[in-house]
């Protein structure tokens, strides 16, 4: 299976070099595509210097738009699968083979579960915990499936989910995580979770904060609620 590692990056010049160096060390045979999501710093230059393929978006499209670009690149260039990895150094490149093993066992989407038993020490605050728990319930009600980590950005996509999401992934907040997950489940594809670790950010700042985060969370919940039961369409439909 030919796999492309997709790294959406926005203003990540401080952490990206270390992340890409670690990926090269751990996974020397894997092609890396960094989607520079309209950064105003040297993110694209850092990625090129590290030997990654780079696609620079002319302005910020958000993680959903960046991922869609990466997935389309993968489809056009003959890749069978993709792995999504954050540019902030929180995901462990050494665990990419664990995700790919899930794809090889027949799953269409493999989610790196940050709350999986015995692997991760990742914890969240009360407010974030409640918000994540609500999303978990929403996914369960909408799809009937019990997914523990609905917002994890460490995922592997097999050929069928890649085809579906290269056109169907939403550009809304959490469109790349919760909404994409619901889309895959609605299409009848197989979703698996595997326990993975999670580190603290190595540099940069989180993309969302306080009041704006609450507002965008409300927007996302509204979109997810409104999208329940929508017919699934893929490229060419």
């Amino acid at each position: 299976m030919r796999t492309l590692l997709v790294v959406p990056a926005f203003e990540e010049e401080d952490s990206l070099a270390d992340v890409l160096a670690e990926v090269k060390r751990e996974l020397p045979s894997l092609d890396i595509l960094v989607i520079d999501d309209g950064s105003t710093d040297h993110t694209a230059a850092v990625a090129r210097k590290a030997g990654a393929l780079v696609c620079s978006l002319p302005f910020n499209l958000g993680v959903g738009g960046a991922l869609r670009t990466g997935f389309r690149y993968a489809m056009l260039n003959g890749y069978d699968s993709c792995v999504q990895l954050d540019a902030d150094g929180q995901h462990l490149p050494s665990e990419v083979p664990v995700l790919l093993a899930g794809l090889n066992q027949g799953a269409d989407l493999v989610i790196g579960n940050r709350f999986g038993d015995g692997v991760s020490t990742y914890t969240v605050g009360i407010a974030r915990g409640v918000a994540m728990s609500f999303l978990r319930s929403l996914v369960r009600v909408a799809s009937g499936e019990k997914i523990q980590d609905t917002t994890s950005g460490f995922r592997a996509f097999g050929p069928r989910s890649l085809k579906l999401l290269s056109s169907g992934i939403s550009v809304e907040y959490m469109g790349d995580t919760v909404e994409a997950l619901l889309l895959v489940l609605r299409a009848g594809l197989i979703v698996e979770e595997v326990p993975t670790g999670m580190r603290q950010r190595s540099a940069g700042r989180p993309s969302q904060r306080s009041f704006r985060l609450v507002y965008r969370y409300l927007c996302a919940v509204l979109v997810i609620f409104a999208s329940v039961g929508r017919p699934v369409q893929t490229m060419g439909d």
Binding site: S170, Y215, L218, C219, L222, V223, A226, S227, R230
Partner: peptide, 19 residues
Amino acid sequence: LLRLVRFRQLRGKYAVYWI
């Protein structure tokens, strides 16, 4: 409004504003 959001003809941020 909800129908527009459902079929991705209106972004969530504008829908929240009008709701």
